[in-house]
Design a protein around this nucleic acid. Structure first.
Lengths: 116, 116
DNA sequence: AGGATACGTGACCATATGGTCACATGTCAA
DNA sequence: TTGACATGTGACCATATGGTCACGTATCCT
């Protein structure tokens, strides 16, 4: 339920491809790269493939780009990943917290675990 | 580079589907559910579809399952998500840290930003 | 102006993916 | 031991996805 109508679905999907993650890594190393510069870092693929991946990253708002003269510069936007970490991954990546909330629920007499 | 030969690619791919995330959520709410119980929480899909998704989650090690009599019980395994958070997402979800390292590089006279 | 450079678009193809079904297997309980 | 129940398998199909290409447009430099 919470996961299906979530707005960060495009982010999850964008991150699912290793080439796209490689592009993010490249931008992490050096921000504001052009299409060409990014192509050079993914040599096993043509420019068109890279451009498609960049478009997907842009749609997921993971990359922000603007033209500068005849080249287009790409900048990494960490905000969606931040949000993912905050409102989804953190939920699973904190079994510690989870154990605590579970304990707290028991102490407070919460019986939601028993329904169905 | 770092992202492409990464071993948590199956985890990323598994998380890319909203149905799969919904299944994880369901297991988060109540652990150790059978296929049937999980099917009941994804009513828009047949049992076979759910089983396929569960298989993918198992392959990604996000779900651990074992048979119990004539039913198969599924348990959430948060470890892969933990690792994802630790060695990938945290890198982007800490612009604070990043700003600091960037500043440090500048202070140390690091010129890697200028190459190409 | 004119050529070289850099990016954009649409068509196109192969394959991966999501989903369903008929059928088979294993398990419990009367 | 029979039947109902719960899961497993393989084939199968439609579409989404990843990738390439021919061609077009915008920009810079001389």
């Amino acid at each position: 339920m919470t996961a299906r109508d979530s707005t960060d679905d495009p982010v999850f999907r964008a991150l699912a491809d290793p080439t796209r993650r490689a592009l993010l890594d490249a931008l992490f190393e050096r921000d504001g790269q052009s299409v060409q510069a990014l192509c050079a870092q993914v040599p096993e693929m043509t420019r068109f493939g890279v451009m498609k991946h960049l478009a997907i990253l842009e749609e997921a708002n993971l990359v922000i780009a603007h033209r500068d003269g005849r080249s287009k510069l790409h900048f990494l936007n960490p905000v969606p990943i931040q949000q993912l970490a905050d409102r989804w991954i953190g939920k699973y990546a904190r079994p510690f917290t989870r154990a605590l909330t579970g304990l707290q629920q028991q102490l407070e007499g919460d019986t939601s675990q028993e329904t169905a």
